[in-house]
Structure formats: C-alpha cells, structure tokens
C-alpha cells in the first residue's frame, strides 16, 4: 500500500472537495484497502465519510424504507424489521463475507465494490479492466466469470445487496455534482455492462447517500451457492421479490448475481411471471427465459444449470 493523506469529511459538500485530487471515499474500507494493498488502486487521499451526518439510519415507512449508505451489513442482517419486510435483503446480507466483515462493511461500499475477478485483483496482471488490452479471463480460467456481458470484460458484479435490491426494485440516491440523482439498480451498474473499465455507473466524486426500498413486494428471497458453505463468494446468486395475492404473483422481479457485470434481469421473465401462480412448470419456464441468452465460456458453463436451480428455488420460496 502506498502512502496517502487522510481526512475526515464533516459535510456532504466538503466530502467531494476533499476527494477532488485522486481521492477515494472511505467507509468500511474492506474493498478499497484490499485493492490498495495490492496496488490495484492508488489514492492520494482517503476521505473518511463515516462522520457524515444522517447516513447511518434505517428508516421504515409505509411505502418505502430508507437505508443510509453507512448502515453496516451487520445492521441490515440483524434488523428484525428488515428480516420481516425484506427477507431477501436479510438473507443477502447474512451471506456477505464473515461476521468481521459485516461489522464494518457498509451498504454503500457493498454496492460500489469492484470486481473480484482474479485477474483484475492480481497485482502483476494488467488486464482490460485495468486499462490493458486483454481480458485474461476470456482466454484463461473463467470459472467465476460472467454468462452475460455487453463488453469484452467478463468479470461479474458480486454485490449480494445489489442483487437483492434489484429484485426489490430499490433506488440508490446518489449525490452527484451537488445534486441528488436517483438510480435504479440497473442504472447503478449499467456502465459496467458497456464499459470494460467500469465497475458501476458512478463518476469520481459521486457518493451513494441512501437506498430507498419500496414495500410493494411483500415477499422476497435470496439464495446463493458457493464452493464452500460460508464465507465464500457466490458462484451464482439469485434474488426474487413480488407481491403475492390470492396465490398469484404481482410485479415479480428476478435478479441474478455473479453472472453478469450487472444484477442480471430479464423483463420477459418478469412479465411472464406476472399474474402466475407458483408451480414447478412456471418457475422452470421463468428460469429458461432468464437464461435464454447465456454465453457460457470454457469453464463457467456450470453456472447455467446452477442459476436455473436457484431461480426456481428462490421463486418457490415466495410461496411462503
């Protein structure tokens, strides 16, 4: 890790100013410090944003809940209201890293974390995502990589919360050039779909302030499968959410993690599920629709049947 300066921001106005000259916002620090230790990212200054007022609250509401960007993953996991209202978010939070990580990692940091691609994270490889000219994973060991991408880089988004929040149709509120911008989860990651250099759609200086989660989908679920049983990145994750009335799904959403640079959603699948009752044939058809355009590579084809199983199972969990 190279030497850097350090400052604590006290206001939303000063934070971006302090970070102007190759500065990075610093909250939980898990992702950033890891990158800096391996010289993937260097910073002239780290701007501690943990003292910014008002961003560490969980606020419940009738139509939506608001979670501050500085809320820790552990707070989300352990919040009884969230467990009840957004079980999928609770389940996604419980699978983030380990207890030690969840105690410091924040909602904002989880959403904004960089790719975990082992080429990107390798100190001695200059891959496409780091400004090089080759996606090593395409030619190399792509067991952990994407089935869908809009560009040459095949590293997937690995944010559990991003996946769960996509299914819940949450909105990230981002401070951008002194104003508040509202981004859906699709919008928050869209740039990574198109641009190999991007991990999300945030510009330098952008700061995630909070996330609004509509309560309209009363049922939600999240499932992931990793090589190990705990403290391991998902090979594939799946989040689903819907309103269920009279046994029928309303406004259902399915999102997949770890198989695309964005939380992967297919409108045709969501449309298909709308108004349906949950049975094996229906969820299987939905899974087919989600995975229709999968582009398996040499080592990640297993993610297709795995995702198929997770979609089916997660949807069936909505039965309650």
């Amino acid at each position: 890790m190279k030497a850097f300066e350090y400052a604590t921001a006290r206001s939303l106005d000063s934070a971006p100013q302090l970070a102007t000259d190759n500065g990075h916002y610093f909250a939980g620090g898990n992702d950033l410090l890891g990158r800096m230790k391996d010289y993937i990212t260097d910073a002239k200054i780290l701007v501690n944003i943990k003292s910014l007022p008002g961003l560490d609250q969980i606020e419940s509401g009738r139509d939506h809940w608001t979670l501050g960007a500085l809320v820790t993953i552990a707070q989300i996991e352990n919040h009884p209201g969230i467990k009840k209202v957004f079980p999928g978010l609770h389940e996604a939070a419980a699978e983030v890293g380990s207890q030690q990580i969840r105690n410091v990692a924040t909602l904002g940091g989880n959403l904004a974390q960089h790719s975990r691609c082992w080429y990107y994270r390798h100190r001695d490889i200059v891959c496409l995502k780091k400004g090089g000219d080759t996606c090593y994973a395409r030619h190399g060991d792509n067991r952990y990589h994407s089935l869908f991408t809009g560009n040459t880089c095949i590293s997937p988004v690995v944010s559990n919360l991003g996946t769960a929040l996509a299914a819940l149709d949450a909105t990230a509120i981002v401070r951008r050039s002194g104003k508040e911008a509202r981004l859906s989860m699709s919008e928050l990651y869209h740039r990574a779909w198109e641009n190999p250099l991007a991990h999300n759609s945030l510009d330098p200086g952008d700061l995630i302030l909070k996330v609004e989660i509509p309560t309209a989908r009363g049922r939600s679920a999240y499932l992931q499968v990793s090589d190990k049983h705990a403290f391991d990145w998902a090979l594939v994750s799946c989040a689903v959410a819907a309103q269920v009335s009279g046994g029928r799904l309303r406004r259902p959403r399915v999102a997949l993690g770890c198989i695309s640079p964005v939380p992967y959603q297919v409108e045709a699948a969501n449309d298909f599920l709308d108004g349906k009752t949950l049975d094996e044939a229906t969820v299987s058809k939905a899974a087919d629709l989600v995975l229709a355009n999968a582009q398996p590579l040499e080592f990640n084809g297993y993610k297709v049947p795995l995702a198929h199983a997770l979609i089916r199972r997660a949807l069936l969990k909505l039965k309650g």
Binding site: G29, L33, L46, N48, K50, A74, Q100, N103
Partner: peptide, 19 residues
C-alpha cells in the same frame, strides 16, 4: 487478527489505525 472494536469483532488487518 480478529479484535473487538466497541465489542464487535473486526479484522484488525483491514482497519486503519487512524480510524
């Protein structure tokens, strides 16, 4: 490297001393 920070377990290796 697990230590407690205000009674919560954290990884001391990924926490800056200054913070």
């Amino acid at each position: 490297c697990t230590v407690l920070l205000d009674n919560l377990p954290i990884y001391a290796c990924q926490k800056l001393a200054i913070e």
